[in-house]
Amino acid sequence: MAINEFTYKGTRFSKDHHSEEILHFIENEFPVLDDDIYNVTYPKSGTHWMGEILNLIKHRGDPTECNTVPVVVRAPWYELKVGLDNAKNLPSPRIISTHIPSHIFTKSVFKSKAKVIYTVRNPKDVFVSLFCFHAMVKMYREEATFQEYLERFLHGNVVYGTWFDHVKGWMLMVERENFFYITYEELQQDLRGSVVRILKFLRKELNDEQIDSVVKHSSFDAMRCGM
């Protein structure tokens, strides 16, 4: 078993980072603004990357804030104990990150003009990244083998539940006007084209120079240098 876990509406969470009170609040009471942008992913699916892209778009390609303020402050996870207040107090337009499955997500978002961007990544790569991460931070009392952790991942015995249910739930939103999905692999293969598509969804306009700056400063090399 993982250390200090609890279940909320069928999904596992960490007592160290989450609470039932916060999950209930963000599901039912979180104050949504019409210009909010929600950066949604399953863990290890490009959350930081999309957060950088969205912040660069917000600042029209200017990397100053991205180079000086951590992404967890600029695009906080609002379901975390350390992230909720940051999210509520962000300057508008707010960029809010989350791994929350769709059935726990803030209900009022889809009654607003707020935008939701969902990034999907190949589950094989997600699993390997999660396995390495959990081994590094010692999420479990005992050291799970690769096969043992694979069984946990496939059956949803991990924080945020199964990749399969997470993706299935969010993809039911695909017909909604304020919902947009993109794959991690599309970002890898054509970052500039992906940025252009995101801009169109957000109904924002940048000139070619500004788009080039967004692409340059959200590339893997640029983000690695900023870590």
Rank of each mutant, 00 (worst) to 15 (best):
E151L: 04
K124T: 13
S97V: 08
C132W: 10
K111L: 14
E143N: 14
V158I: 13
H103Y: 15
Y140A: 08
H103Q: 10
M139D: 09
Q147P: 04
K107R: 15
F146C: 14
A114I: 01
V126C: 12
L154R: 11
V158D: 04
L130T: 06
F153H: 07
K124F: 11
F127S: 01
S112C: 05
F131W: 10
N122L: 07
S108T: 08
F127C: 00
M136D: 15
V158P: 01
H99L: 08
F110V: 11
C132L: 15
I100W: 00
H99D: 04
N122A: 08
Y118T: 04
S112G: 00
M139A: 12
E143W: 07
Q147I: 07
G156N: 09
K107D: 15
S129R: 07
D125A: 10
F105I: 02
S112P: 00
P101M: 09
F110P: 06
C132Q: 15
V126P: 01
H99A: 13
V109E: 03
L130Q: 11
K138R: 08
Y140E: 07
V116Q: 05
T119I: 10
H155E: 08
F131K: 06
V158K: 01
F133G: 07
H155G: 14
V137L: 13
S112L: 02
K115Y: 03
K107S: 15
S97R: 01
T145N: 04
I117M: 08
N122V: 06
P123C: 10
S108V: 05
